[in-house]
């Protein structure tokens, strides 16, 4: 078995189950444990932070590949991206159902009036086309270049998610700032890589057949 095949068959299912862990924790505590005095707030905060974490993990995969040269990492990018969308959907639905009782006019009122919702809603909505076009079929249909261009929307989603978090907290912006720095570093890595590639003096050793650079 080649190492890529091993990653596919063994590591991938393990990572998949691990990524379901936060959801499992929520379900377990909702039925057999304890979600605290304000369960709706717990669910909202928990699904929100895991959305952001998966966005960051997804953005980290390509730079970590450059850094380590461990190319099979690319096999996980679609999965982590889809988990970001999964937790983002849970987060949005909690807000849509429990805060707005499924009345979209209420959501729209927030989107228009409240910057933190504008940012969060934008971040979520832009993930929808990414999730829909995440299949091999769609990559073929769009072609690598167009597909890559479309999937740069993840950068706007990441910025939106951090701003959403930053504007939401009442006082303590420590964690939103940490996530902002993380996202900033991951953006900077891309700019740096692009500059390196553009420089004719050095040709970086990058063997990643079929994988988009960004």
């Amino acid at each position: 078995m080649t190492s890529t095949a091993a990653v596919r068959r063994i590591v991938k299912p393990v990572v998949f189950l691990a990524a379901l862990g936060p959801f499992g924790w929520l379900v377990y505590n909702a039925f057999w444990g304890d979600l605290g005095v304000n369960p709706v707030e717990t669910i909202t905060n928990y699904t929100g932070i895991w959305t952001l974490r998966f966005i960051v993990i997804t953005l980290a995969i390509t730079p970590v590949r450059w850094l380590t040269g461990f190319n099979p990492l690319i096999l996980f990018r679609r999965m982590t991206g889809l988990f970001a969308f999964f937790y983002g959907t849970l987060h949005f639905m909690t807000y849509f159902i429990l805060d707005h009782s499924l009345v979209f006019a209420g959501v729209w009122d927030d989107v228009v009036k409240r910057p933190y919702i504008t940012a969060g809603f934008t971040a979520f909505v832009l993930m929808i086309p990414l999730a829909l076009t995440s299949t091999q079929g769609w990559i073929r249909r769009l072609g690598g270049r167009k597909w890559n261009l479309l999937h740069r929307l993840i950068y706007i989603t990441a910025i939106g998610a951090v701003l959403h978090y930053f504007w939401k907290v009442k006082l303590d912006t420590t964690f939103p700032v940490y996530y902002g720095i993380l996202v900033g570093v991951l953006f900077a890595a891309r700019v740096w890589q692009r500059a390196r590639k553009a420089s004719p003096a050095r040709v970086p050793v990058r063997a990643n057949p079929g994988a988009p650079g960004l």
């Binding site: 909702a30 039925f31 057999w32 444990g33 304890d34 979600l35 005095v37």
Partner: peptide, 12 residues
Amino acid sequence: VAAGAAGPLFSG
């Protein structure tokens, strides 16, 4: 109270 329908999600 909830006739078995509710879990500790409702303990609040």
